[in-house]
Design a protein around this nucleic acid. Sequence first.
RNA 1: CGGGGUGUGGCGCAGUUGGCUAGCGCGCCGCGUUUGGGACGCGGAGGUCGGAGGUUCAAGUCCUCUCACCCCGACCA
Length: 418
Amino acid sequence: MRRSQLFTKTMKNAPADETSLNAQLLIRAGYIHKEMAGVYAYLPLGLKVIDNIKQIVRQEMEAIGALEIIMTNLQRQELWEKTDRWDDDKVDIWFKSQLKNGNPIGLAWSHEEPITDMMRNYIASYRDLPANVYQFQTKLRNELRAKSGIMRGREFVMKDLYSYSRDEVEHQKFYDSVTAAYLKVFDRVGIGDKTFVTYASGGSFTQFSHEFQTVTDAGEDIIYLDRTSKLAVNKEVFTDEVISQLGLDKSAMEELKASEVGNIFSFGTAKSDQLGLNFTDQDGKEKGVVLGSYGIGITRLMGVITELFADSKGLVWPDAIAPAAVYLIRIGDSQPVTAEADELYNLLTASGIGVIYDDRNARPGDMFADADLLGIPNRVVISEKTLANEKYEWKQRTSEKAEQISREKLLNMLGFRK
RNA sequence: CGGGGUGUGGCGCAGUUGGCUAGCGCGCCGCGUUUGGGACGCGGAGGUCGGAGGUUCAAGUCCUCUCACCCCGACCA
């Protein structure tokens, strides 16, 4: 995109009411807009990041045989009553409203119940199983107190996946494949080395659920990590009994702050029983479908990545999710410089390489500062100087110095394909 | 929900024991000089001081109510 067309602005100061680093930087860089406490809009650059993360998640979900759908945000009371989760005393984060006729409706904070109920239409036989569906959805949660910028809002985007299996064996197999897929996702978005499978409370259905915890001081959770096995235990279940059950050595475990970027858990057939999701097995008997539920907080993930990589100059995006690969700066507006910059911009854009082209004819310092604040991985400068050398100036966001490189080398590095 | 705090142009802030036309920096507009790390000069625009009510000759400033936002705690399938 051309910078002159980007309506958002960068700011030197963050709003005083934002204390979390992620919200401060994302607002200053024009990625998000705060609508109210815990509620943020995603602007062009922020949306690109979200879309890039989604695309990675989507690829990994498709790879393990899950299909994408999109459920509704309005939900029926009766479904949640069947599982005893409608009552505000049971679930205290409900947003509720009503239809014109006065019938209560719930605003989606999760989709386990509606999806499972819907699947009754499609699952009747063992031949219909397994079935795995996922979606990217806006969840609405009436948190008592929003905090940590986009890491814990009242409205946020989540990828939620639900698996329907014939039995525990089939379920476990898929559960394991999700674990592997999630680790791949976190690896691809650049936080693989800081994200750990973590044993956490399994609620009323199983002893444990598994969380994916990314180590960061911005996190709200406390985990105990065993670096050698790369396994962690959430503080909420960190007891001597659990430690020995998992074969871990307490003295070798490190206490760390972390943020939960993913969570997977098994329901057994409990929820299926409550909602009446059964199938007829090969032996002619009716059985409950084994259910699993798997979430990745997309917007939280964006916040965690922001916190993890940002430096004193601003955002720093991993290549895989950056809103653009290149921030192209044109110094001066002489005809040769402009022609060269336009040409490079068109060439890269046409080959699918994302470019933010700073065509504002602003002062160099302003453009350099913006390139840094926006966190674009590569900065390319075209000026009279570079033209004279017949080179481009190239600098990575994470490196200190710039170098002069040939067009071929630049294109190569950016993965240019005709 | 308990405790603490903050609301003054788009953003960051100042504004004394109530007193005159509410200031400053950044940003914005115009003109000029500049042009490789957030330039400079001159001239401008922009504010129901969160909202409502009250006290007073006079309220950004005092009182009451209210709304929003932030922090700590609690909560967090």
